[in-house]
Design a protein around this nucleic acid. Structure first.
Lengths: 328, 328
DNA sequence: CTGAAAGCGCTTACAG
DNA sequence: CTGAAAGCGCTTACAG
């Protein structure tokens, strides 16, 4: 690969001048500029970013940590970050930290520190004590999407209110026996909040909450529904803690000839891509993932360390209708 | 951030020695080693990779270019590359090139060159003339997944044979009026191959091919089906060029009360995550995405520039059954 | 076993 | 307008 020196030699100037021309930093004659630029072009010169970063003491890199790419909502977030990067000349260093894999998250963090990323965006990753400490030592600005990381800014919807709103939506549509399923009750953040919101709404309405825990997955939704079916305790409506899980519920329902929404209403959570791809479309709580990604990168860039709570909204599709008993 | 010099000063040795200790390259007493290591630990020292890369003349970075993260099958590929990276201390520089966006792909390529990536893995990206030339100038090893890029190794299934096999699968299940839909007939690679395979199989069986072009999307599948329905020309079976499109077909079918697979058999392509999330499960042609990702990174690492053709297989789920007319 | 020196490719004051 | 020099943080022969 050609270097600045090669160009300098061919253009009969010093590397200093080449650098100035290439950076358009002024201080050269038009004639020199042309000569240097021409040679650089001919050589298909590419700046060695490692060298640039070394002197600039920065990396122009932003680190993105996700649990894994299969998480259905990671895609729109990464997309919006990438779009920003494209517009602004930033670069994305991607790493997966797995689920509750402390060791791997530690590796991610160290890797990002070594690369001197300008900041980290973490998507739904939980930090345990040791990684919290590491993060503190590394002094890397971080912004977390979806879950709270101690002392770090967060961008998220209000899970408690959203779960309440979802539950109330079901109640206002005439449902009374409503189960919350596939929610991770051990998850100190999202899980707990969604449970609390659901319970609060149910109790306010004088209804009895019923929760089947799970890991937000399709399988969790499917199994919960099968369990309910086997016990002959199918509720009137199921509030799934994610759209993946809602898809599992609908799958199980269809498999057993239970009509959605006539015999079973299903409410999802996320408005991820699958929500609009299955029939009936999943009525769900929309999280503005694209906006989350964009805000995250903007905050990082502006060194804005404030948290922001984004609005959720209920996206109505076909999986919830007015309950029969509610029809006048 | 602490540097090697800081450690050297505190440990009362020279940077050379610190470097040796940190790299375990030998040539120091156990006593020195301990002292240096201790101080490095206390300082939470993180090597500046830009500096390391500058002298090593490498980056330890592998570039991954995808059209966008929303492509349903990008996820498993990225996952497997990331897993490899985690095991082997590599890092992933991610970039999106959009769809047929020559300018953006060019930016991606230049960005990768600037970062001195060890190699590039491109996922389903088409290179136009100008980028082919750029790639050549940049001299970056590349391995393409799914589509052929001139003069570069490719990892893919045989789309022609796979489409033939899919069509024959449908035929052998008793279907005769089979349409291929949502296939991009302008796509010189995948699209053309899948069309050709379908046509060949149809003609060999004495059947009439019928193709509705599209962009592999859910919407393309849905619209094609609605079109067929409106024209009252619904075939017995639809071969969708992707699982997303197959989901669209099934959606439209359910919406119009057409039973799958009883009244309409649906065959997908990819075996992406959505295939198992909708009911009935999509019978589809499985592409080994994880394996593709793993092979790609291994080839890149071993400087193996041979192409490899991976086996596809038909994954049977519920969207195709024996056709009535075929029942004895 | 340890240190002094040169160098990776670039940028940036400082002179002239 | 241009050049010489120092320096970013590290590694690696070469001496001793």
């Amino acid at each position: 690969m050609a270097t600045i020196k090669d160009i300098a030699r061919l253009a009969r100037v010093t590397p200093s001048t080449v650098s100035r021309v290439l950076n358009r930093s002024g201080g050269y004659s038009e004639k020199t500029r042309r000569r240097v630029q021409k040679i650089a072009d001919e050589l298909h010169y590419q700046k060695n970013e490692a060298a640039v970063n070394l002197v600039a003491q920065t990396s122009n890199l932003i680190g993105v940590i996700v649990t894994n790419a299969t998480t259905s909502f990671a895609a729109p977030i990464i997309d919006s970050i990438e779009d920003w990067a494209y517009q602004n000349g930033g670069r994305i260093l991607l790493a997966h930290c797995g689920l509750n894999d402390s060791e791997r998250l530690k590796t991610c963090l160290n890797l990002m520190a070594g690369r001197k990323v300008n900041g980290i965006i973490s998507v739904s990753v939980q930090f345990d004590e040791s990684n919290l400490k590491l993060l503190d030592q590394l002094q890397l600005p971080l912004i977390s999407l979806g879950v709270k990381v101690s002392n770090q800014p967060m961008i998220s919807i209000d899970n408690l209110k959203a779960a309440m709103a979802g539950t109330n939506y079901l109640i206002s549509h005439g449902y009374q026996r409503i189960a919350l399923i596939a929610v991770d009750t051990n998850d100190p953040q999202t899980g707990k909040m969604r449970c609390a919101g659901y319970q609060k709404a149910m109790e306010s309405a004088g209804l009895t909450p019923s929760i089947i825990p799970g890991d937000y997955s399709f399988t969790a939704g499917k199994q919960a529904t099968e369990l309910l079916l086997a016990k002959r305790e199918l509720p009137e409506a199921i509030f799934a803690a994610s759209d993946d899980a809602a898809a599992g519920v609908i799958y199980a329902a269809q498999e057993h000839g239970v009509k959605v929404p006539e015999q079973l209403a299903v409410l999802g959570f996320d408005n991820s891509s699958v929500a609009s791809m299955i029939y009936p479309g999943i009525t769900t709580i929309d999280q503005p993932f694209k906006q989350m990604g964009r805000l995250a990168i903007e905050h990082l860039t502006n060194q804005d360390i404030s948290s922001v709570e984004l609005p959720y909204q209920i996206k109505e599709r076909g999986s919830v209708a007015k309950h029969n008993s509610a029809q006048s």
